[in-house]
C-alpha cells in the first residue's frame, strides 16, 4: 500500500467570523507515520482533520498531500480514507455494500470488488457478517466495518476522528492494538484525533498537542511525556509537579521523585493521601514549606508499607526537572 506525506502550512480557520477554531497550524506528517492530534475538547482537532479531508476550506494557509497542493481539491477527488466517531455507516446498505462503496465509486470491476471486500472484511475479522445491515451490528463490529470501508480502497492517507471514542474500555484497548498493527502492516499514513492522552501515547509515532487552535508541541510520545515544552502540555499529559524556582517553572514527573530517608532529602514532608494503583502507588505529600507534591512509587508484589501521616523525605535530580517556556 502507498502512503503519503501531509503538510499543513500555516492553516487558519474561523467559523461564523467569530470562533477561531484553528489558528496558524503548521504540521509535517511523514509518509507511513501514525500521527495523533491530541488536545482538550474544542481545541480544533476535528477542524484540522476536516481541512485535510476537504470538508472545510481554510481561511488562509495551504494543505499539501504527497507534495501536491490539494487545498482547492474537492473531497471526492482527494483519495483518502476516513473513520468517523459515529462511524457514519450507510444504514440502508449491507456490510458488504458499505465496504464496496469506495470501490464502486472508483469503478473497480465487479469480481475485483467482491474479492477485495472479502479480504478487507477478513482483515478486520468480520467474515460472515456481509449481509447484515449496520443496525444489526454491535458498536465494535460497526467500528470495524467503518475501518474496512475506509481501508479497502487502499488510501495513502487514513483520517480517524476519535474512532474508538464510543467503545468501552476493554474493547477500546483491544482495538488500539489492532488499529496500530493494521496501520504498520499497511504502511498507511494515519492521522488520529483523540482527546485521550493515554491512547495517543500508546499508539502514536508522533503527537501534536493542540490548545485553543494552536499546536503547543509536536514530538514522539516519550518526548512529549518527558520533555513537555509548555505548562499546558506538561499538565495535559499525565500527572505533573510544577516547581517554581527562581522565577522559572519546571516540570517534574511524580515517578522522578524518590522517597528517601529524611537525612538525604531535598524536601521533607508527610504523606497526605496514598492511592493504590495496582503496580504502583501515587502519594500526595505535604512538604514542610507548604507545597503539595505528587510522587509515584512502583513496587513489586506486596502493598506499599507507607501510610498517610508517615514522615518522608523527597529527592530528585535537577536534570529531571524540565524547564518550561514562559
Amino acid at each position: 500500500m502507498t502512503s503519503a506525506t501531509i503538510r499543513l502550512d500555516d492553516v487558519t480557520k474561523t467559523f461564523d467570523g467569530r470562533v477561531l477554531a484553528v489558528d496558524g497550524v503548521t504540521l509535517d506528517i511523514a509518509a507511513g507515520e501514525f500521527f495523533s492530534l491530541l488536545g482538550p475538547s474544542g481545541c480544533g482537532k476535528t477542524t484540522s482533520l476536516r481541512m485535510i479531508a476537504g470538508f472545510e476550506l481554510p481561511d488562509s494557509g495551504r494543505v499539501h498531500v504527497a507534495g501536491r497542493d490539494i487545498t482547492d481539491l474537492p473531497v471526492h477527488k482527494r483519495d483518502m480514507g476516513m473513520v468517523f466517531q459515529s462511524y457514519a455507516l450507510f444504514p440502508h446498505r449491507t456490510v458488504a455494500e458499505n465496504v464496496a462503496f469506495g470501490l464502486r465509486m472508483r469503478e473497480v470491476p465487479k469480481p475485483d470488488i467482491e474479492r477485495r471486500v472479502k479480504a478487507a472484511l477478513a482483515q478486520v475479522a468480520l467474515t460472515g457478517l456481509e449481509e447484515r445491515k449496520p443496525g444489526q451490528l454491535s458498536g465494535g463490529q460497526q467500528q470495524r466495518v467503518a475501518l474496512a470501508r475506509a481501508l479497502v480502497v487502499e488510501p495513502p492517507v487514513l483520517l480517524c476522528d476519535e474512532p474508538l471514542g464510543a467503545l468501552d474500555r476493554k474493547l477500546r484497548q483491544q482495538m488500539q492494538f489492532e488499529l496500530k498493527e493494521l496501520q504498520k502492516r499497511l504502511g498507511v499514513t494515519l492521522v488520529f484525533v483523540t482527546h485521550d492522552q493515554e491512547e495517543a501515547l500508546a499508539m502514536s509515532d508522533r503527537i501534536a498537542v493542540m490548545n485553543h487552535g494552536k499546536v503547543e508541541q509536536v514530538g514522539a510520545p516519550t518526548e512529549i511525556y518527558e520533555r513537555p515544552r509548555t505548562r499546558f502540555v506538561a499538565d495535559f499529559i499525565g500527572e505533573i509537579n510544577i516547581l517554581e524556582e527562581a522565577g522559572r517553572a519546571r516540570a517534574l514527573r511524580p515517578e522522578k521523585i524518590r522517597l528517601v530517608p529524611p537525612a538525604e532529602a531535598r524536601v521533607a514532608g508527610t504523606i497526605e493521601t496514598a492511592n493504590f494503583l495496582g503496580g504502583s502507588t501515587l502519594y500526595r505529600i505535604r512538604a514542610a514549606d507548604g507545597r503539595t507534591l505528587l510522587t509515584r512509587e512502583t513496587h513489586a508484589g506486596e502493598r506499599s508499607p507507607r501510610a498517610p501521616g508517615d514522615p518522608v523525605g523527597l529527592a530528585w535530580s535537577d536534570s529531571d526537572a524540565v524547564a518550561l517556556e514562559a
Binding site: 479531508a53 482527494r78 457514519a88
Partner: peptide
C-alpha cells in the same frame, strides 16, 4: 456525516 463518508470514498455531490 453519512454523506461526508460517501464523499471521502470518492462520490461526487451528484452521486452522494
Amino acid at each position: 456525516r453519512i454523506e461526508e463518508a460517501a464523499a471521502v470514498l470518492g462520490a461526487s455531490p451528484t452521486r452522494v
